[in-house]
Every structure is written in structure tokens, then in C-alpha cells.
Computed example of a mutant assay.
Amino acid sequence: MRKLLNTVYVTTEGAALRKEGETLLVELDGAEKTRVPLHMLSSIVVFGAVLVTPALMAACAERGVALAFMGRNGRFQARVEGPVSGNVLLRREQYRRADTAEDIVRSIVIGKIANQRAVIRRAQRDYGSEMEPPARAALQAATDRMAQILRRVQLSDAGVDEMRGFEGEAATLYFSVFDHLIRTPDAELRWTSRSRRPPRDAMNALLSFLYTLLTHDCRAACEAVGLDPAVGFLHRDRPGRPSLALDLMEELRAPLADRLALSLVNRRQLRARDFQQMEGGAVLLGDEARRTVLTAWQERKREERLHPFLQEKAPFGLVPFLQAQLLARHLRGDIDAYPPWFWS
């Protein structure tokens, strides 16, 4: 099994990243803050104005360590990586299947809806008895309807566009009851609706930040097994968009990103004061809050779960790599179908 390597996140603007021997050296105001052996790293992610020396970039490219640049608000800006590796025959099969991928899209949509429904059902089990009757009824109605959608996806011979419609309907249901999953006294952290580019409230800012981190990991997973992250099945091709990485993350949004966001807010590790309202209406995580989220993200990725298809335990952080590997095996013809990852 692939080793779960570390990702280094640098959030302090003005920091400098250098190569010293076979290690990454992080400095601030000329003083050493930390150092990490390069062979222990899978990627480096920097936020805002952080200096990265050409020597370190070259070393990362040579060793397969991805280097991602994010804006201060966590929005993706650029990615530096070495030569593309992978089997050309696998990529040719990926391109060939991209226009006739109903079976793969069906698996992705089933995994996403099932995991969204599992998040709601977990909330029902954990604190449903404490909810007001209207909230309990809304959650039950959503899970019942999502179960019906799941059956339609599983049993129908729907095309890709129709399955995209099923996925969109389930997502609308999921986010329509998302506020009932939030348990915080801060009115500013309540949920209204999904907004992005830019996020208009605190919860959307938190979700968008976590989705960016998850996209980074899914893209790395695609590249690690030799797949082209730009050519997806559920997501249409668009210049500059890692469509396959977005496909892979759909199954993981709810159990990994959404559940973490809810935990941080419900445990009051994040409060309304941790978010900043910008002049244009965007809401961003504050610097300290961003560090809190990144620490929690790394801890969550180390948690182990049983993989339902492989029947072995693996850290959350390896799930994108395992799913990319299973997708590659399906495209090669080694397994009959792409098995989605189910959270329980």
C-alpha cells in the first residue's frame, strides 16, 4: 500500500522555503522555523506571499513532490510539478471512455449521494432526539427522498446528463437541511445556501477552503497512478479545470470535508470571530483559524477507516489514492466496475 506521506502547509506570509541538503528548510525573518526531509513529503502548499527558491522547486520536481500556490484566502493559483509519469495506454483508454462513461458516472453519483445521506443519518443518530420536531421531520424527509434517488440511479439506464440531474437534486436536498446539522450559538455560522467565488458567509468560506484542500489531494492521486486529472467523466472538460480530480472528490466531500467543517463548528473550535468580512462581500478564514483547520485536516487524514471494497483499513488521507488506483484498474479491465467508497 502507498505510504501516507506528509503535506507541509505554510500559512505565514513572508516565510521563505529553501532546500538545504536533502531537507526542506522553512525560515521566517532569517530564523529557522522548521525542517523536513524531502523524502517524507508528498506535497507543499503555500498561502499568500511566501518565497520558494528555484533550487527547492527543482528538487521537488525531481522527487515528485507537488508544490501548490494558494491565495491568502485559500483559492488555488498555480501548481508546480515535474515530468508527467504514467502509462500512455492507460491515458488513451481514459480519453476513449470519457464520452461513454455511464457506468463510472453511476458509481460516482451513487457514492456521493450515499455518503451525503450517511452524514445526515449520523446526525439523526447522534443528536436527533434533541432537535425540534420540524427539524427531525425535515431530515427524515431528505433521507427518504435521497434513498429514492439512489434507487433510481442504481436501477435505471439513465445517461450521463440524467445522472447529473439526479446528483444535483440530491445535493439540493442535502444542503436544504444542512443548517439542522449545525449546533452553535453563533448566528453568523448558520447555513442559508451554497455560495462560492467568493463565499458570502462563514460556513461557505470554511467548506470552500476544505474543498480546495481535498481537490489538491485528489489531483495528486490521479497523477500518482498515471491518470490525466484534467479529463473527467461526471464533470465536463473545461480549460484549467481538473475534472477527474473533481470526480474523485465527489464521494469524499460529505464524509471528509463537510463532516470536518461541522465538527470544527459544533465543537466550537471555530467561532464567528474567526472569520473576516471583506469589502466586496466575501468572507474569509482568519490566519489563526486557517491554521486550526489545517491542523484538524491533517489529523482527520490520519484516521483509519475500513475500505468497503478492499476490506482493509486505510487512513482517510490514502482514500483518494486508493480510489484513483481502483479507477485505473477498471480502465485497464482488471476489475469489472469502478467501486465507489462508502462512509459509515
Rank of each mutant, 00 (worst) to 15 (best):
K3V: 09
K3H: 04
Y9T: 08
T11C: 15
A16R: 14
R18Y: 06
D29A: 10
L38S: 03
M40F: 04
S42N: 02
S43H: 13
V46E: 03
V46I: 15
V46C: 07
V46Y: 15
V50E: 13
L51Q: 08
L56C: 08
A61T: 04
A61E: 12
R63K: 11
A68M: 14
A68F: 06
Q77Y: 12
S85C: 03
N87T: 15
V88Q: 01
R91K: 13
R92N: 15
R92V: 06
R92Y: 05
R92T: 02
R92S: 14
I104R: 00
V105Q: 00
V105E: 00
I108G: 00
G111K: 01
I113F: 00
I113L: 02
Q116N: 09
R117V: 01
R121D: 02
Y127E: 05
M131F: 00
E132A: 12
E132Y: 04
P133L: 13
A135N: 11
Q140N: 06
R145W: 14
R145Y: 15
R145V: 01
Q148Y: 03
I149W: 00
I149H: 01
L150C: 07
L150R: 05
R152E: 01
D157S: 10
E162D: 05
M163H: 03
R164M: 08
F166G: 01
T172A: 07
T172P: 00
T172G: 13
D179R: 10
H180C: 11
H180L: 06
R183E: 05
T184R: 04
T192L: 11
D201Q: 13
D201L: 11
L207F: 02
L210K: 03
D228L: 05
P229M: 05
P229H: 08
P229S: 06
V231R: 08
V231I: 04
G232Q: 00
F233I: 03
H235F: 05
D237M: 04
D237G: 04
R238N: 03
P242G: 12
L244C: 07
L244R: 02
E251F: 15
A254M: 07
P255N: 14
P255F: 11
L260W: 00
A261E: 09
L270S: 03
L270N: 02
R273G: 07
R273M: 08
D274K: 01
Q276H: 01
M278S: 12
G281K: 15
G281P: 08
L284T: 15
L285M: 12
G286M: 14
D287P: 03
E288M: 14
R290H: 13
A296D: 07
A296T: 14
R302F: 04
R305D: 06
L310Q: 15
Q311K: 14
G317Q: 13
P320N: 09
A324H: 03
L327A: 14
R329W: 14
I335C: 12
I335W: 07
Y338R: 12
F342A: 10
S344Y: 14
